[in-house]
Every structure is written in structure tokens, then in C-alpha cells.
């Protein structure tokens, strides 16, 4: 991290001609070119980017505060989609029966999303109480690797519980809001996608405000910086941990419910969101929440470009190559600090 005094002494050109700014600038440039040539690229990037930001922000938060590299983050997405579907199905039936109920049509999708966020948060807290707390009590040796494997076990368990109990089929909806698409920049955007983007923006804004401006958010960031120090300052670690994992899980589940029309609920639905969120977090630098939100849009841009110009199948291959390239130049990620954290030991 460059300190304030350093900033003043570094020449202006050198300060902004860093690798990070180069990549960011390039991304913005591509967006501008795309906006003129192919506006749908911009729309796709923003819509999916918003949701990846929710997932990746939660992933970065739980890593930053609790040092847990959550491999089960995708399964919270799955839980969200499942809850969203269960709650929305009867509402959808009601809408079909009374096509004139305008209010129901407008607010109908929200109960499912809110329920998903709450259930996701509850599952997250359950994981903390049942799994992470006992492990923390037993040993904190190699905590990062152990929790990574632990969450891998949780992921396998949840995916197959879903397969076992709920069943191995797709549960999805075609759309949340049954209204004609809106036109913007010569592209027609379905209302669902526009709404998802708005929901993502509002949630991200609230999330950032919470982290930056409230006492609890400050406490969370304090724990992320120095656990022992935060404890000495009188912060109740247990509470912060539960809150962190609840928040992170709730965001993932909210994304799962909100994207139900794109990702129907089935046991393996969490895998793609999981590794995309991980792409973002690794690209941005582990544990960096704001970086993750910015990184989500970069990954989403990469994805959209790949799908548009190369083919859907390459969506795993090319972004990966790009991320590996970036890490060669900046091993701690685009927005990562040069300071080595606990997770690299």
C-alpha cells in the first residue's frame, strides 16, 4: 500500500500508470468501444456483473473477516434458488388466476427473494455454529486450508442432500415480471434483467454503506485487519463471525433467487456461480470486498466478450487464461496489497 506521503512524492504519470489502472482503463475502453459497436455487450456485462458482485462481495467478506475460503458459496446460491422457487411458485399461480391484480404482479417476486436471503443467512449462521466454531475451538493450525476442505465437504453434502431430498430435476421459471421488454441503447432488455441489475445495485450500495458507515461494519473491518486487536478493543468476535457469515451467505442466496429465471434450481447449479465468484475474488485480491465488486464487472465483461466473439463453450477457458496472466504480473491480485496476509503462509 502506498501511504499518503508516498503519494505526494511519486510523479503523477507513474502513480496512475500502474498495472491495475492499465487493466481498469482497458476494461473501460473496451466498454466504450462496445457501447458503440455492440450495445448488448454493455448491457449483458452490467446485468451479470451486478450479480457476480453480490456473490464475490460475500465471498471476499467471509474470507477477509473469518479467513474462510468458502467452497460452499455456490451451494448457498443453490439454497437461494430453491427457496426462491418454492415461495414464488404459489404466487405465480395466484398471478395467473387473477391477471388483473397489478400490485401482485409488481411485488410478487420480492417475497421469494427476501425469504431466500433470510434462509441463506440462517444456513450460514448454522454452518458457523455447527462446523466452524468447533473447528476453531479444536485448532487454528492451517486454518485456511482446513476450512477450505471443510467447506468442500459441506458443498458435496449440500449438493447431494438436494439431489436426495428434493430430486435431480430442474425447477425454474421463465420470468419474474410478465411484461414486455424495455428498449435501451437499441437493445431490448427484459424487465427481469433490468430489475436484477437494480436489485444488485441497491444491495451493493447498502452493503458498502453498512461496511463503511455503521459501527458493526467498522467492527467487521477491524476484525478483518487484526483479530486480536479487535478483540482487545472490546469487539465480540463470536457475534461478528455470525454476522459476517450470515451476511455473506444471505447475499449469495439472494443472488440465487434473483437469477432464478436464468439459473433454474438443480443440484449442480452452484458450481458455475462458485467458480465465477472465485475468479473475481482471485483477480481482485483475496479478502478485498470493494475490489471484488469492481472485479465482478471485469470478469463479467470477459465472459460476455468470450460468449459474443468466440463461443459459449469457451467461457471457462479464456477468462481463466486471462486471470492466470494477470496473476503472473500481480500475484496478489489487481487490488491486492503488497502486504502478505495470513492466507499465504
Amino acid at each position: 500500500m502506498t501511504t499518503a506521503t508516498n503519494l505526494r512524492t511519486v510523479p503523477l504519470v507513474r502513480r496512475y500508470l500502474t498495472f491495475t489502472w492499465l487493466v481498469l482503463g482497458l476494461a473501460v475502453l473496451i466498454m466504450i468501444v462496445a457501447a458503440i459497436a455492440q450495445p448488448s455487450i454493455v448491457v449483458d456485462t452490467l446485468v451479470t456483473g451486478g450479480m457476480w458482485a453480490l456473490l464475490a462481495g460475500g465471498l471476499a467478506l467471509i474470507f477477509g473477516v473469518m479467513n474462510i475460503p468458502n467452497f460452499a458459496h455456490g451451494e448457498l446460491f443453490l439454497i437461494g434458488s430453491l427457496v426462491g422457487f418454492t415461495v414464488f411458485s404459489p404466487i405465480q399461480d395466484a398471478i395467473l388466476e387473477n391477471p388483473d391484480a397489478a400490485l401482485l404482479k409488481v411485488v410478487g417476486p420480492f417475497p421469494g427473494m427476501i425469504a431466500a436471503a433470510l434462509v441463506g443467512a440462517a444456513v450460514g449462521v448454522g454452518l458457523e455454529v455447527l462446523l466452524f466454531r468447533p473447528l476453531r475451538k479444536r485448532s487454528r493450525d492451517q486454518w485456511v486450508m482446513n476450512t477450505f476442505l471443510l467447506t468442500a465437504g459441506v458443498s458435496v453434502l449440500l449438493v447431494n442432500m438436494d439431489r436426495l431430498v428434493i430430486g435431480n430435476d430442474f425447477r425454474g421459471i421463465t420470468r419474474y415480471w410478465d411484461v414486455p421488454p424495455i428498449r435501451l441503447l437499441d437493445v431490448s432488455i427484459s424487465v427481469d434483467r433490468a430489475m436484477v441489475f437494480i436489485i444488485a445495485l441497491i444491495t451493493i450500495a447498502l452493503f458498502s454503506l453498512f461496511l463503511q458507515r455503521t459501527r458493526v461494519g467498522r467492527a467487521m473491518r477491524a476484525v478483518a485487519q487484526d483479530e486480536a486487536g479487535a478483540q482487545m478493543a472490546g469487539i465480540d468476535l463470536k457475534r461478528i463471525f455470525m454476522l459476517t457469515i450470515g451476511l455473506s451467505s444471505g447475499l449469495a442466496s439472494l443472488a440465487g433467487a434473483a437469477l432464478l429465471f436464468m439459473f433454474p434450481s438443480y443440484p449442480d447449479v452452484g458450481l458455475q456461480p462458485l467458480y465465477l465468484a472465485w475468479y473475481v475474488v482471485i483477480l481482485a485480491g483475496l479478502g478485498n470486498v470493494q475490489g471484488a465488486i469492481a472485479g465482478a464487472f471485469i470478469v463479467s465483461l470477459l465472459q460476455t466478450l468470450t460468449v459474443f466473439y468466440v463461443g459459449v463453450g469457451w467461457v471457462d477457458v479464456l477468462p481463466t487464461g486471462f486471470i492466470i496472466l494477470i496473476l503472473l504480473f500481480k500475484p496478489s491480485g489487481l487490488f491486492g496489497s503488497a502486504v502478505k496476509g495470513i492466507w499465504e503462509q
Partner: peptide
């Protein structure tokens, strides 16, 4: 550590 594991995954 975790970077290596995740990169191997990618």
C-alpha cells in the same frame, strides 16, 4: 497456500 489450490482448480 490457498492461491495455489485455487489456481490449480482454475
Amino acid at each position: 497456500g490457498i492461491y495455489a489450490a485455487v489456481m490449480a482448480w482454475f
